Simulated assay, not measured.
Amino acid sequence: MPVIEPNTNKPRFPLRILIWTAVIVFAGLVMILNAFATVQYGNVGLYKTFGKLNDNILAPGIHLKIPFVQSIIQVNVQVTKAETDTSASSKDLQPVSTHVAVNYSVDKASAYKLMNDVGGSFDNVIVNPAIQEIVKEVTARYPAEDLIAKRDIVAGEVRDALTKRLAKYDLLVNDINIVNFKFSDAFDQSIEAKQVAQQQALKAENDLKRVQIEAQQKVAQAQAEAESLKLKKQEVTPELIQLKQIEVQEMAVDKWDGKLPSVTGGAVPFIDVNSFGSTASQPAATESAAGEDAAASGDTAASGSAAADKDAP
């Protein structure tokens, strides 16, 4: 019989075995990788086994799970902002468009209840409709002007009502801000006209107060002047009047050049010549008396001569 020599080129392991080995190793790696899941910071995790949630709350970090059987869903528990625009009517039936921003968060301990009862889209299902309904309700309690003047009070009422509403779903309201109130153009024009009128009225009031103060100042000044004149009048005496007259006459004599004006339009100022002194007046009186005696003597002589002529033949 012929001897069959072994084939030295035949592989030591069959190719089929190598392929299955590679598949098993790959599957093992996949299983190992799927046996771990990471819960990100700011979130909590919930096991979901064949579509059913587990109430075990997972903290941030790496957690084991059954590959291809379990999954971990993450719930954001950080503060989240929800913004919405709401159209409503005020108490005086003015159309109002309100832009509201609400900061809220999910209660960590109640994440399972929220996700099991509402689901992951709770912001659109619960938060936004609640904001719009409550804003409309609160806006209808106030006239349009009060919505502007009492913005903080309105925001407080919205926050309180929204807190009670979202507490049913274990949602926490951290803060609320009314970003803007928007009214109709006609209402904005009326508000502007009213503000202008108020400013004009305030200006008129200030002008009136200023006039009153100035009048009071004038009255006070007049009273002070009258009081001053009264005191001065009490100081005037006959001796002071006579002294002032003498001073005026002396000033007139000092300025007089001894000539009377050639043309006068009124009375000549009176000058008391007796005040010049008794010495100047005595010679004038003596000369006047001598003149009168000479005139009398002349008249007597003339009378005697006339009588002698009459008696002569």
Rank of each mutant, 00 (worst) to 15 (best):
F50Q: 13
T237V: 08
T49K: 13
K259S: 10
S105H: 04
N116R: 06
F181V: 03
A312G: 09
Q216N: 10
A284H: 04
G277H: 09
G291N: 14
I246H: 14
A307L: 12
V118F: 01
A35I: 11
A144E: 05
Q94W: 03
E192L: 07
P67F: 02
F183S: 04
A252W: 13
I19W: 15
Q94S: 08
V158M: 09
T38R: 15
A289R: 11
L243G: 14
D160N: 05
A167I: 04
V253Q: 10
S288W: 12
P313C: 05
A130W: 00
V253S: 07
K108H: 00
Q245P: 02
D85G: 09
D175N: 12
G258N: 07
G258L: 05
N116C: 00
K232F: 00
I62F: 06
S87R: 08
G277S: 08
D107N: 15
K232V: 01
K164M: 10
K233N: 13
I134R: 05
V253E: 09
S228M: 13
N54F: 02
A215Y: 05
A224T: 11
V138I: 11
Y41A: 14
D257L: 10
L171Y: 03
G266N: 02
P238G: 05
A215R: 13
T98S: 01
L240P: 05
A88H: 02
Y47C: 00
Q199G: 07
A149V: 11
A295Q: 09
K230L: 10
H99E: 13
D299G: 04
G51M: 04
S190R: 13
D309E: 14
A289H: 08
A59V: 09
H63T: 02
A296T: 02
T163R: 01
P238A: 12
S110N: 12
S288D: 13
K209C: 07
E287C: 10
V273A: 11
N103P: 05
Q70Y: 03
A109V: 09
L172A: 05
A285N: 03
T86A: 06
E292S: 07
V219T: 13
W256Q: 04
E83Q: 11
Y112S: 06
F68L: 10
V135F: 00
A220E: 11
I131D: 00
Y104P: 07
G277W: 10
S121A: 14
Y112N: 02
Y169T: 04
S87M: 09
